[in-house]
Each structure stands twice: as structure tokens, then as C-alpha cells.
Simulated assay, not measured.
Amino acid sequence: MNRQGWSVHQITLALYPFGAGAMAVNAFFASLIGSWMGGPVLSTNIALVVGAIIGLPATYTFARHIRALMDRADDTSHH
């Protein structure tokens, strides 16, 4: 099968800013919930760094899912 469209790495690169931002928000809100149990609340800068780090594998995983959906849609459209 000949793949058409963007590769997983291209999709990851295009979606990374959104994935990193989403992970930063999630990390910040998780720290707010953790503060109810005595944990520290993350600063904005720390939340952004955490988001940048955990955003990459999260975005890559999502890009693989999107690529698989593209492949499946492409496969069914050729039958």
C-alpha cells in the first residue's frame, strides 16, 4: 500500500504546540487538585516546561492514531 498524505512525524510537528499547551494546562490543574492534599501549585513557567516535556509523547501518540485513521479511510476509499 502506498501511503498518501502526511507522515506521523509531520503530523506530530504540526500538532505539537496544541499538545504541549494542553499538557501544560493539565499539569497546572493537576497541581491545583494536588494542592487540596498539601502539594505545591505549579507556577506558570514550570507548568509550561512540564507541558513541553509530556506534550511530545502525547502528541506523537495522537499523531499515530490520526495517521492510522487516515490509512483506514484511504484503504476503504479504494475499494
Rank of each mutant, 00 (worst) to 15 (best):
Q10R: 10
Q4P: 00
A58V: 15
N26H: 04
H79S: 12
V49I: 00
I66E: 15
M37A: 11
D71H: 01
A68L: 13
G19R: 03
W6Q: 14
L56S: 00
F18E: 14
I11D: 07
G5R: 06
T44S: 13
I54K: 01
S77P: 05
H79C: 00
P40T: 06
L56V: 13
T61L: 09
H78N: 15
W36F: 14
T61Y: 04
Y60A: 11
G21D: 13
I11Y: 05
S35R: 09
V49T: 09
L48E: 09
A27N: 03
V41F: 02
N2H: 08
R64L: 12
H79Y: 06
Q4H: 08
F18N: 13
A30T: 14
F18D: 10
L56D: 10
L32R: 13
G39I: 03
W6S: 12
L42H: 05
S77N: 14
S77Q: 11
L32Y: 12
M37C: 02
A63D: 14
L15Y: 14
A20S: 14
F29N: 13
R72S: 07
N26Q: 11
V8Y: 04
S35Y: 06
A68R: 15
M1G: 04
F29K: 09
R72D: 13
T12P: 04
G38P: 07
A52D: 07
Y60L: 12
H78Q: 12
V8F: 02
A30L: 10
L48M: 11
V8H: 07
W6E: 13
D71F: 02
G21I: 03
S31M: 04
M70K: 09
L42K: 04
R72G: 09
R72H: 10
F62I: 07
P40R: 08
W6I: 03
